[in-house]
Simulated scan of single mutants.
Amino acid sequence: MSRLFLLVALLLSAVTARADVQVLTSIKPLQLIAAAVEDGVGRPDVLLPPGASPHNFALRPSDVRQVQSVRLLYWIGPDMEGFLPRVLQGRSLPSVAVQELPGLQLRHFVESDHAHEDADEHDHDHRPGTLDAHLWLLPHNARVIAERMAADLSAADPANAARYQANLAAFSERLDALDARLKARVAGVAGKPYFVFHEAFDYFEAAYGLQHAGVFSIAHEVQPGARHVAAMRERLQATGPTCVFSEPPLRPRLAETLSAGLPVKLAELDALGARIEPKVGGYEQLLDALADGLVGCLQSL
């Protein structure tokens, strides 16, 4: 009986230790990275529900309470979650804006020949010179973020520090395999033209030799004027067989208008991984799904 009592006491103390180090991330991709680091110790929470936009999310009172009370908080930064800085002013515990971590490889939006077709209707800032905050789509950056998370968790929960560091090492090895797998997967479609409705994939594209031919940037549920639609259709018609990618959960109503009668295939790319479970391998699944979506559509042309 004494051994059983000791075992129960140890299990209860482990549960208490895990409960003391609560991790909250703003968006699913950060949750997927945290889940890899916390494997076997805890389960990170995420603030935004599936399908919510990090650019203009409206916090509920319960969300505000969670943000202000959770032990460890990770968000991309003010270039992504513009709704968070005001709420974080009331937080006494530290929070990490990962866009500020040293060692990241960061990109900034630039003027190019592939300018936005409807630049006056952005729902967030993609002006030249501003930070491209979709930084999680580069495996190198995921590694840097995981290293910070492992360090923070090890300091907050020394009893499990060895497990966090082992999880970090395993995640790093998986990222090496992921990088090699993605390079091989997309090699056959490099140079094929495609269009997107949201300029969210530049990190992924730059890493794996891809380049969108144009961005049909529109405000959600806003139908642009006939002149803009005609200009977009001309771009598509001149390109020939191509793919146009939107992001879930909603396909812009404009997609069908643009593609009607043209050799254009409509498909989805999910930069946030809304349907992916926060568990080991989740981050890799996110990037594998992007590669599969791109390659699957472009190879079918």
Rank of each mutant, 00 (worst) to 15 (best):
A180L: 09
F83H: 14
A267E: 09
M80R: 14
L101P: 05
L301Q: 15
R185M: 09
A14P: 10
A260V: 02
P278R: 11
G214Q: 04
R43Y: 00
A52Q: 08
P128T: 14
N141I: 08
L266S: 14
G51S: 03
A190Q: 15
E81Y: 08
A119Y: 12
V280G: 11
A9E: 05
H212W: 11
E205N: 03
E284K: 10
S259A: 15
A291Y: 04
D132I: 03
F201N: 12
F57S: 09
L137S: 15
G129D: 08
D120Q: 15
A226L: 14
R227I: 04
L258W: 07
A226F: 12
G293R: 13
E173I: 00
P263M: 06
V186H: 01
A142E: 02
L272Q: 09
M149Q: 08
G90W: 11
P248A: 05
Q89C: 02
E147W: 06
A159F: 01
R3S: 12
M232W: 09
L138Q: 06
L210W: 10
E234C: 00
G51V: 05
G282D: 06
L210K: 05
E100Y: 14
E234K: 15
E205A: 13
L48E: 00
L12Q: 03
L104E: 07
H140T: 10
T239R: 13
E121V: 10
Q237S: 04
D179N: 12
H212Q: 15
K192Y: 06
A177V: 06
R185A: 14
E100V: 09
L135A: 14
H116S: 14
F5S: 08
N141W: 03
A260H: 01
V67G: 05
L24I: 04
K28M: 04
A200Y: 11
L30R: 06
A289G: 07
R185H: 15
S246A: 15
I145G: 05
G191V: 06
E247K: 13
Y283A: 01
A19D: 01
A159M: 10
L168N: 02
L269G: 12
R107L: 15
E234W: 01
E199S: 12
T16P: 01
V96R: 11
A291I: 00
L175S: 06
R148M: 07
L269E: 04
D157K: 05
V64R: 13
L106Q: 05
P44I: 01
D39P: 03
S154A: 15
H124V: 05
L24M: 06
N141H: 04
L269S: 01
V98S: 09
D39S: 12
L294T: 09
L178I: 04
I33F: 11
Y203T: 03
L11P: 02
S53C: 04
F195V: 11
H108E: 11
P61D: 02
